[in-house]
């Protein structure tokens, strides 16, 4: 489903150039439940943004569903995002002046689905999340867990192949976090690839595959070290 080869990405801010991803090789098969871990600045969010076609990269290849994603026009990128990928964010990113149902239905608007049909679909997905009664409420009237479930419903409504979640439990308490993770698992059981970026160990342990990033490299996959620590390398002969 996702193949990444020797991916490089750097940010230029003024005169400084920050090399964030320094050659990532990664394979994620269809239907995997993956977590990406790493301390802040390890490049995990950047990697997620590139996978989500929200950001471009400098070097290497990113192949999504046998399609090379490279130097894409914004229009094409938008189309692919809409078709393949559902996003879930830490800060929910719901549109404040739209109610729950309208928020969930929005991706279908960009697929030119008629109002009636998309509202019907939105209600169905809200029902699945157990939020049918909250359909006409605005995000400000909902709890964090409810908001995140609405965001997940929104991500699911286009029936994407991949769900990308950037710290989806970062703004939630532990109990709610676990509830949300249960939802992700259920989604994964339907065959959708789920990639979760997190820095919480207990969250990552609920996934099947844990990718650890460090300083722009993949440090380990499922605990198997790929990267030899610079420190260790230097002193291994001692």
């Amino acid at each position: 489903m996702i193949r990444i080869e020797n991916l490089h990405k750097s940010y230029v801010t003024g005169l400084n150039k920050l090399h964030v991803l320094k050659g990532i090789d990664l394979d994620i098969r269809s239907g995997e439940l993956v977590s990406v871990m790493g301390s802040s600045g390890s490049g995990k969010s950047t990697l997620l943004n590139i996978i989500g076609i929200l950001d471009n990269y400098d070097q290497g290849n990113y192949i999504l569903d046998n399609l090379l994603i490279k130097e894409m026009s914004e229009k094409k990128a938008a189309l692919l995002r809409n078709k393949y990928i559902g996003f879930v964010f830490q800060s929910f990113n719901l549109i404040s002046f739209k109610n729950a149902m309208e928020n969930v239905a929005l991706p279908l608007y960009y697929q030119k689905v008629s109002l009636k049909k998309r509202n019907l679909a939105a209600m169905e997905f809200l029902d699945r999340m157990g939020l049918k009664e909250w359909a006409t409420h605005h995000p400000s009237e909902l709890s964090g867990g409810q908001k995140q479930r609405i965001a997940i419903a929104r991500a699911l409504i286009t029936k994407p192949k991949i769900i990308l979640a950037d710290e989806p439990t970062g703004a939630l308490d532990t109990a709610t976090s676990y509830e949300v993770m249960e939802i992700f698992k259920e989604i994964n059981d339907l065959g959708i690839t789920v990639i979760i970026v997190t820095h919480e160990k207990d969250i990552s342990e609920m996934t099947n595959k844990i990718i650890r990033l460090k300083d722009g490299f993949i440090e380990s996959i499922n605990g198997e070290k790929l990267l030899v620590d610079e420190y260790e390398k230097e002193y291994s002969h001692v």
Binding site: G52, E74, R154, T158
Partner: peptide, 9 residues
């Protein structure tokens, strides 16, 4: 947000 969920420029 709109762009992330598929809005074209």
């Amino acid at each position: 947000i709109r762009k992330a969920i598929g809005a074209s420029p």
